[in-house]
Simulated scan of single mutants.
Amino acid sequence: MEWVGDARLTAGPEATWYLEMAFTPGAHLGTVYDDPTTPIVVTGIEELTTIRVPSGRLVVDAPWHDDQAWEYRRGLPARPPRELAVRIPPGVYGVEIAWTAGPYEFMGEHVDGVQCAATRLCISDAPVVGWEMGLGVEDDIARLQPGEEPRFFSDANVGCFADAGAWTTLSAPFRMFMDGVPGPRDTEQLADGCERVRDESQQADLVTFWAESGGVVWLGRTKAGDVAAIVVTSGMPGAKA
């Protein structure tokens, strides 16, 4: 039987177009704000790193939230991260970033306008036949309003993929950073400011990526309904060009 998505979650035509084009080098994703003659172009796909998810449970959220510092300093339990309701096979997966450029002038200075268009967790090579929004374990689809996009929020414009089973250990460097512990975070620096945290006791990882104000999580489904890709978008710039 072929997969049929829930209409309340299924990506519409514009979102589908964006998700398919964001990882196509040379594709135009729109035009620069206030300059319809300059396109926003996908300049390349970066294979950022790999991530271990031994539990099959995936967090897609900010690695910290500003309001958690208040809770942490008072010994209060931190709110749980946004764990996806969908489960993936335990394994090691590639993380890719789609970069775009849309140059513009600002106060007489040239700006290259390089941005992260989307971040992808590659689950399998199977073709994606449709996209749907990924709900969190605490989301209630019955309360989803027409046009509403469930998402995570980020005060620092940073998101992450992480194994949910090892979240407490994996997010610890960020909690300590928020608590004002001096010195650099105990993380591995990746390209373009992204970071990775490893928990060798559980063979699990956390990987951060750019996510302006947070992002919407999209599940790429195969014909059989399996999840082949998980993509985070922070915004879909401009109209199609």
Rank of each mutant, 00 (worst) to 15 (best):
E195L: 15
R79L: 08
C116Y: 01
A166C: 05
C122D: 05
E212G: 03
S124L: 06
Q189N: 12
D205N: 08
T43N: 08
T31N: 14
E71K: 09
T168S: 14
D226L: 10
F209V: 01
W3A: 14
R196S: 08
V86T: 13
V60G: 00
N157A: 06
R175W: 03
Q145R: 15
P81F: 01
P237I: 02
R143K: 14
A211N: 02
L121F: 06
W210F: 13
H65D: 04
R79H: 11
H28N: 14
G94S: 12
S234T: 10
D34I: 06
D112K: 09
D139T: 09
L135R: 01
R52W: 12
E138D: 11
V32Y: 01
C194W: 00
P127I: 11
V32I: 11
V4N: 12
V92P: 04
I51D: 01
P103T: 09
R82D: 04
R196W: 11
M21Q: 15
A69W: 00
T168P: 06
A204F: 06
W131C: 02
P25A: 09
R196I: 09
F152A: 01
P25R: 11
M133F: 04
D67F: 05
D112C: 04
T49N: 13
I88Q: 03
D35Q: 13
A62W: 00
G108C: 11
P39E: 14
P184I: 06
G225P: 10
G30P: 01
E212R: 02
A229Y: 02
P127F: 12
D140G: 03
G180Q: 11
G94K: 13
L29K: 09
A15K: 10
D139C: 09
D226Y: 08
V181R: 15
A228R: 04
D179H: 06
I88F: 07
M1I: 12
G235P: 02
M178P: 02
E83T: 14
I97H: 01
D226N: 13
P150I: 02
M21I: 03
Q202G: 04
